[in-house]
Design a protein around this nucleic acid. Sequence first.
DNA 1: TTGCTATTGCAACTAAGTTGCATTAATATG
DNA 2: CATATTAATGCAACTTAGTTGCAATAGCAA
Lengths: 141, 141
Amino acid sequence: MKALADILAELSRGGFRITRARRSMIEVLIGSRLPISAEGLLASLIKQRVPANKTTVYRELNFLKERKIVQEIQFLHERVKRYEVVFGSHHHHLICMGCKSVEDVELDGELEKYERDIMKSRGFKVLNHALEFMGLCEACR
Amino acid sequence: MKALADILAELSRGGFRITRARRSMIEVLIGSRLPISAEGLLASLIKQRVPANKTTVYRELNFLKERKIVQEIQFLHERVKRYEVVFGSHHHHLICMGCKSVEDVELDGELEKYERDIMKSRGFKVLNHALEFMGLCEACR
DNA sequence: TTGCTATTGCAACTAAGTTGCATTAATATG
DNA sequence: CATATTAATGCAACTTAGTTGCAATAGCAA
């Protein structure tokens, strides 16, 4: 995963400013073990006494998304979107319907096989995918 | 896939009423080649001169969802939810980012293998999953 | 035909996110 | 350091998607 300093340097090089709010938001996103919602991010800033505002949070999340620094995730059982820092390796989620916890899983090499098959049999070029598993974690079973 | 008459009979047996709006909504859902949104469904009813209302549409979709007659789908690139009649065989979608068309794919036996692996290695019992592929269809490549 | 109650429609509401615009503050430059 | 430029911010008002309370309507069993 990228470190805070790398992300800030990249943005700075791009002519963007490193504001208090921006730095804190990226910090929270990096520190969050699970994808976080806009509302959660705002709450986190307020708790840290970083002056921030709903509009700023949404704008920053879109900004970071456009720059591929974060990615947006839509869990099927929720209405809000969540965000997480883009990892080197793409991964998926195991969402527990009992305790609502979320774990990561990687299984990518294998999905790529499907994507080649889809290309071969349908002529459809897969550029991206979304996959999540819903069920019960070890503790909730 | 289930036929209209089967669905209506099932509901009737359950003590629910076969109203004009309900019948038409199920017809539209069955006839829709692709998952349809609440708004699209309402528009379709109005075009057919079936008196209907936003509230009724949302309520009926929730009703049908609870009874597992339709399933809700959230495409990653959209904010609205879509609905489709539950097929015997579970399937996934290929969403073209060019023309926004949606095709179905089936690849289930294979995903189940992942799910067994996840159970074995993580103790997480998968009950359901959501998978969609985004890319470019044959015509748009 | 009638009574029971499932279903409907309206208007008002909520939740999540967006937009316009005037203000503030990073930062490059002298 | 001082300051000009303009990226970023905050506010209020708005939009979109979906929900709720309640009184009115209409399936359908008897």
